[in-house]
Design a protein around this nucleic acid. Structure first.
Lengths: 207, 207
DNA sequence: CATTGTTTGTGACAACTGTCACGATAAGGT
DNA sequence: ACCTTATCGTGACAGTTGTCACAAACAATG
């Protein structure tokens, strides 16, 4: 309970959680910090430190109770209730995200898709009608969505973000290759794989 | 020239580079650390510190020469020559990545696509024939590709990575929601958006 | 119940990362 | 030639993050 969790620490918690749920059911009822660490490519001390930020629920000599830990992590990460998510930008990437199974198997549901291209509006994709981005505000209040995923061109990312925020969205996952600014109270995460590719390129160059 | 660049520092360099190339041509010939910092949501001191790791090419009173800086960053990141990239896993996400314009506009070209699904093999997508993953080794040596992108299910990520490495691939961009292990000399980057979504969820919960 | 073996939780430490502040340096005008 | 203004490069500092090592806690066994 001693230290404040860091942002990267939270991502590690999500890794721990994903590992626990992925090897569901089988095996031992307890798992040690060493075993968990090995599964996610970290150190045992790191695992214990991360978990200790939220109380003490390991038992010396045995490790952590798998079910209890899974439950606890679920609570910490806020995965108790399913989240409604809206998606803006139904291009190649947006379509793929709509179809992506990984979201559904977790606790997220994409409940609406938007675009500004007249040729796409009205069409159906994966059971969702693509709607005019003008409808954003209405849909957000109807569905109670707090999170949004944007996969739009870099040039319009900022204006889409602004529209989302004034529609009441509180958290944004940004796939657009651009940095955007948000108010203090809005949570923003970037998934910027063009940058990651460059990072890779650098790694090769300086091998 | 004083300090060693960090991994996150390199990603910032890529951000600087992307900004410079995106506002191509127009405006002033020089840019200050403050202006660059504002564009990528960092501090001026941070920008100067990052750049200083690779020599001193700013001029006091003026800032950095845009063209020279762009050139320099290109060199540092290793973007001088175009990189051939192979893609493994042509599902929803893989197809989207094949079609993604962002790669081509940069210096990356996807030269081959692989899958293990017999129903997909032989089909054409975006001008590429989807090939049997058995052919990996041959294609890698023919094309001289050093980088690979994998967008396969979590369960097979490790074996695909192993196959890539024995085929001669040196850098891997992993979109699969799983951590994999690679030898010391292989560069690996994760694009793990299910984790980022969880991170977002946590942020909302603890607002 | 004492002993042995295992694993946790955490204080202390080390390493890394970002910020601040300021001397140094260049351009431009008078 | 000098002064002013703008901006860089970096030493020193502060804050953050990860590692180590060990006492405390619990299980298991005889």
């Amino acid at each position: 309970m001693s230290r404040k969790i860091s942002s990267t620490g939270i991502e590690r918690l999500a890794l721990y959680y994903r590992y626990l749920t992925s090897v569901n059911g089988s095996e031992q009822a307890f798992i040690s910090s060493a075993e968990l660490a090995k599964a996610v490519e970290h150190t045992a001390a790191q695992v214990r430190r991360d978990l200790s930020c939220f109380g003490t629920f390991g038992t010396p000599g045995r490790g952590y109770d798998r079910a209890a830990l899974e439950e606890k992590l679920s609570g910490i990460l806020g995965k108790g209730k399913c989240q409604n998510v809206v998606l803006v930008g139904v291009g190649n990437l947006g379509s793929a995200l709509l179809a992506y199974k990984g979201f559904q198997s977790q606790c997220y549901t994409i409940v609406a898709a938007f675009d500004n291209d007249a040729k796409k509006i009205g069409k159906h994709l994966k059971g969702l009608e693509i709607q005019d981005i003008e409808k954003l505000s209405d849909v957000v209040s109807q569905t109670g969505a707090k999170m949004a995923i944007i996969s739009v061109p870099a040039g319009v990312a900022q204006e889409v973000v602004d529209a989302l925020i004034s529609a009441g969205i509180q958290g944004i996952l940004n796939f657009a290759p651009a940095r955007v600014v948000v108010p203090e109270d809005i949570v923003l995460q970037h998934v910027d794989f063009s940058i990651k590719l460059d990072r890779l390129c650098y790694g090769l160059e300086h091998a």
